[in-house]
């Protein structure tokens, strides 16, 4: 039982770090600034969730799990905020996205 749990935790951590690695590659090889953000956001979304989730299984039920959950929650709230601040600052500074197509506002969202 313990062995299986540990295996699952290890697999979660490894798959998370693979997403992180792919995001690093994306941030390096995407063609322009805005697409590079998409690459980097790959490292900021599922990567931390999987890595910290795996570590939480390692730790079992204890204060450590609470701390890991706090780190995860904090990362998930701040990283999109920081990314938005960055993208918006670049946009306001006049950095144009490349080769984009514009779509009109959709008919029925908002609710």
């Amino acid at each position: 039982m313990n062995g299986i749990l540990e295996l699952v935790a290890g697999l979660l951590v490894i798959s998370g770090s693979l997403f992180v690695l792919a995001g690093g590659i994306g941030a390096l090889r995407m063609p322009d600034f805005y697409t590079r953000i998409h690459g980097a956001s790959l490292t900021d979304s599922l990567g931390p969730v999987l890595v910290l989730g795996g570590l939480m299984i390692y730790a079992g039920l204890s204060l450590i799990t609470v701390k890991l959950a706090a780190v995860m929650l904090f990362l998930l709230v701040t990283s999109p905020t920081a990314t938005y601040a960055l993208a918006n600052a670049a946009l306001l500074a006049g950095l144009k996205p490349e080769g984009v197509e514009r779509m009109p506002t959709g008919p029925e969202e908002g609710a």
Binding site: V13, V20, G23, G24, A27, F33, R36, I37, A40, T43, D44, G47, P48, V51, L52, L55, L68, V71, L75, S79, A82, T83, L86, A89, A90, A93, L95
Partner: peptide, 23 residues
């Protein structure tokens, strides 16, 4: 090449440091 690319990279470096410390 732009400042914003560098800030993006530094931000990424920072969040990865957090993960690395945890691991």
């Amino acid at each position: 090449p732009s400042v914003y690319d560098r800030v993006l990279a530094v931000n990424m470096f920072g969040t990865k440091t957090v993960l690395l410390i945890a691991v």
